[in-house]
């Protein structure tokens, strides 16, 4: 039998990068207005080197609308999938994802409050929503960890999951309550809570890239510890992992990354749950390979989901969360049954 690490070499990474670039180009070319691949490549190449873009190329659509959106979708997909993989390893639970902690629900609550009560930052369109989402994500984390600590001083995985799930339910109830009394904002709230990256710009890309670079770097650094947690928390302690410290660092890092993503894209479900499973089929469970593979597969999946969301019912644009949930649910059931059958 060939070892997984022998099958997963640098060539696989090259393949992933090629697939990601190919998907990004596809997503820039396809849309309400179709753009030839040559025009897209020329516009991007010339813009990169400060050359003049020939007349007749839809420069504005390519560089101002689709390129930032595609970059943001890829970054959010990579981040959510990375967080899901880290949470599944840390909590040793294949059903864990970015929402298990309750932080994404907290971020959603912050954003909904901003939308319903008109919290804004002058000069920005969604600045108030973003700041509120990030602030609430952080507050939620503090609250969840404090409650879990009061319940169980050792901060056991079960306590964190339990408090996270209860907090998510609480946040959902408050969101529903706000929606009931904020009828005039229902459309924007619903659209936001289903997730969308339309209208995002390079400013968002910079924030997302920085968050992914910093938080992703920390998570990747802890891939060995995540392997130890995925085998078992007690075993991790026995081999010398500082269980509490590593757990806190990963939970905080994941929360910050989720907070940033949710504040820009809204809630996008299933990416963090399904894509690590898909990646695990290629790489095996070792987080040294799984985490990078999850990032690539999450980015590619969300790009395709976004493409479907904006082209399926043209000119109506669906929320990206609708597509990820539909595809994700079917994919998850398929994976689940295949895994059960294999056993």
């Amino acid at each position: 039998m060939k070892k997984i690490s022998d099958r997963f070499t640098w060539r696989t990474y090259v393949l992933f990068v090629a697939a990601l670039i190919g998907t990004m180009l596809l997503c820039i070319c396809v849309g309400s207005v179709s753009i030839p691949l040559g025009d897209t490549v020329t516009a991007m190449w010339n813009s990169l080197w400060g050359l003049e873009i020939p007349a007749g190329i839809s420069k504005s659509i390519i560089l101002n609308v689709r390129l930032p959106r595609v970059i943001n979708v890829a970054l959010v997909g990579a981040a959510l999938s990375l967080c899901g993989a880290a949470m599944q390893g840390l909590l040793r639970n294949p059903l864990a994802d970015d929402s298990t902690l309750g932080v994404s629900s907290g971020a959603s609550l912050g954003a909904v409050i901003a939308l319903a009560f008109g919290v804004t930052i002058p000069g920005t369109t969604y600045g108030g929503t973003m700041i509120m989402a990030m602030g609430f994500a952080f507050l939620s984390l503090i609250m969840i960890l404090s409650l879990a600590y009061v319940l169980d001083r050792s901060l056991s995985t079960n306590s964190i999951i339990l408090i996270g799930v209860i907090f998510s339910m609480f946040a959902s109830s408050v969101i529903n309550l706000i929606v009931t009394f904020a009828e005039e904002h229902i459309k924007s709230i619903t659209f936001w809570t289903m997730g969308s990256l339309s209208g995002t710009n390079f400013g968002h890309s910079r924030i997302l890239a920085l968050a992914l670079l910093l938080c992703g770097g920390v998570i990747l650094r802890y891939s060995r510890e995540l392997n130890a947690f995925a085998i078992g928390e007690d075993n991790a302690r026995h081999i010398g992992v500082n269980v509490r410290r590593v757990k806190m660092i990963i939970l905080i890092t994941v929360s910050v990354l989720i907070g940033v993503c949710v504040s820009i894209s809204g809630t996008i479900s299933f990416v963090g749950l399904v894509m690590p499973h898909m990646a695990r089929m290629i790489t095996g469970p070792n987080h040294k390979r799984l985490l990078p593979a999850s990032m690539f597969s999450g980015a590619i999946f969300l790009l395709l989901a976004d493409l479907v969301a904006r082209t399926l019912l043209r000119p109506i644009e669906l929320s990206i969360g609708v597509v990820t949930s539909l595809v994700g649910a079917v994919a998850f059931i398929t994976i689940f049954y295949r895994t059960r059958k294999a056993r």
Partner: peptide
Amino acid sequence: RPAQLARKVGVLAQKNTVGYSYS
């Protein structure tokens, strides 16, 4: 420190289960 302790003391637990397919 946990790593320092683990270099001196090795522990085999009574029950060991693994959830993922590590080699």
